[in-house]
Design a protein around this nucleic acid. Structure first.
Lengths: 231, 231
DNA sequence: ACCTGAACACCGTTCAAGT
DNA sequence: ACCTGAACACCGTTCAAGT
């Protein structure tokens, strides 16, 4: 799993972590999360199932490697703007869109707080915080809040993508959801009936995600000067 | 799964969804997530594995039922204060603490956006929003941001609890994490080295969680009047 | 109608045996 | 050293057979 020198053009048929991870990503993207088994992976690589264990510790390790391969390119992509607000929004949206393209990352992000994938987001977000002059002694809290929010939404929408069958388009999916929620008790769920149901059909996941980011950023701005009680 | 009249004292030996879910929660709490199998559940209920399927559709259904059983009591617990800020904080902390006691809920919250568990949080939070006079046309966005953040953090810390072996206390767990992160490249991970590592050992998950909630609440307050461009 | 438990169709992972 | 693939120890779920 160490990068080492980029000997990409050696092109032997030998197995390698990189080749295995690439094949795994292909299966995950084209056939979905539950299609990735060591048997399927072995047959795609024209080898035995056991051979894979010489290069990858286990299935968790394999999934972590695949997640990191995708995420590292997202996080490294140059932000289009100098404004740190825009940079943070761009990073967040980059993660969101990567999730859209590779829904299986969601379950990974939700379950590997201390692994490298999450740290990459924390770093990318945290590093831009200086430009916002967030309260110095709260940079860790702020970066964590943003990271947790991103990872949380990511995991959610990935779960949606997984649970919505392929033959169900987004529109009818929302309709089915709305019907189910409409049956909820009016007394017990006033907010759902008054606010959520009327907006559900026309709401946009990506815009709503960004609205949450902006809310947190506004919170940082508000906390900026207003909060220096002791030191 | 419908509640019906509360015939709790009928005390027959017959299987029922409620009895099955109670037994499942017991296994989940005492032996962990991976210990819940239909075989283990059947033997605890002194029945055959197939019998369970007469009352519960499948394992997903079983886990959803267990999650809802826990969460509905948390969300219904009376908030100790009249201030809607405090109420929202109390609900969020209630979920956080429930996660601490029942870590397996985390994986459920992360993977069932449209199921009832998540809606309960959305409702509980959203219903308090009126008291904050958040911008009317953005109540759905605001409630979603809070809910996603809560569920995201929940899933995370549940994953931590799952991955940390029982013989590892929190302190040494954080030490191991710090050691691993200290090996990250200084150029590539400046924020981790400058901010995160020095604070990691003494940081408090619960306080950090609450800091995120407060950040979002501050964002709502900031957006309150400042944001009425068109209408 | 409800329950039983063997059977089915899978998994991830291991390991003797090959090259 | 690397690969092979049968074997192991499990799963969730089904279903004929019982009561």
């Amino acid at each position: 799993m160490t990068p080492g020198d980029s000997s990409r053009d050696r092109r032997t048929d030998a197995l390698s972590p990189a080749r295995i991870i690439a094949a795994a990503i292909e299966i995950l993207d084209t056939e979905g999360e539950q299609a990735l088994t060591f048997r399927a992976l072995a047959s795609r690589l024209a080898t035995g199932a056991g051979a894979i264990y010489h290069h990858v510790a286990n299935k968790d390790d394999l999934l972590a490697g695949a997640t990191n391969a995708i995420l590292s390119t997202v996080v490294r992509s140059p932000p289009p703007d100098d404004d740190p607000h825009e940079q943070i929004r761009a990073i967040a949206l980059g993660v969101f869109d990567a999730l859209d393209a590779h829904p299986w990352i969601g379950s990974q992000l939700a379950s590997e707080r201390w692994r490298i994938g999450k740290v990459m987001i924390l770093e990318a977000v945290g590093d831009r915080l200086a430009g916002l002059d967030a309260p110095r002694d709260r940079e860790f809290d702020v970066a964590s809040a943003l990271t947790d929010y991103v990872a949380g939404v990511a995991a959610q929408s990935a779960a949606d993508a997984r649970s919505a069958p392929r033959d169900l388009d987004r529109e009818t999916f929302l309709e089915v959801t709305a019907e189910r929620w409409a049956r909820l008790d009016l007394e017990e769920y006033p907010f759902v009936h008054r606010v959520v149901l009327p907006e559900l059909a026309r709401h946009d996941d990506r815009a709503q995600f960004l609205a949450g980011i902006d809310l947190i950023l506004a919170g940082i701005r508000a906390a900026k000067g207003a909060n220096e009680p002791r030191r």
